[in-house]
């Protein structure tokens, strides 16, 4: 098991996020795939450096959180910094709003084929 957040020093979260505790609606969800658009530069915050290194291949928000051992909500703040400055991009950041909650039949067909081939 990863260390629990309860054991975590809140000051660390404060430092990592610069004191912010929530972000505007960023369109990111747990499985949004993130891709780096540049290399880390000297003096960049270490978490940002790690994200840029990881995301040279597309990486889901939740995998970034797991790798950095930070809560998803903290990682989203870090990702927003990088999105705002164009250092990363999010693929398909905003899927169709879940009005009926039912996914597109065409997507489901592809999921089925993928699962059957497992």
């Amino acid at each position: 098991m990863a260390p629990r957040l309860e054991d975590e020093n809140p000051d660390r979260l404060y430092m990592v996020t610069g004191g912010r505790s929530n972000v505007a609606d960023d369109g990111l969800n747990l499985v949004t795939l993130i891709v780096s658009e540049c290399d880390p530069t000297p003096g960049m915050q270490s978490e940002h450096v790690r994200i840029l290194r990881m995301c040279t291949s597309p990486t889901a928000v939740v995998e970034i959180a797991s790798e950095l051992r930070l809560p998803v909500s903290v990682v989203r703040i870090l990702l927003c910094d990088l999105l705002d400055t164009g250092r990363i991009t999010a693929r398909n950041p905003r899927p169709a709003p879940a009005e009926s909650r039912l996914p597109d039949p065409d997507v489901l067909r592809q999921v089925l084929v993928g699962l059957e081939n497992l």
Partner: peptide, 10 residues
Amino acid sequence: PLASSATTGL
């Protein structure tokens, strides 16, 4: 890592 062609997380 995922393939670089990956676009959609479900």
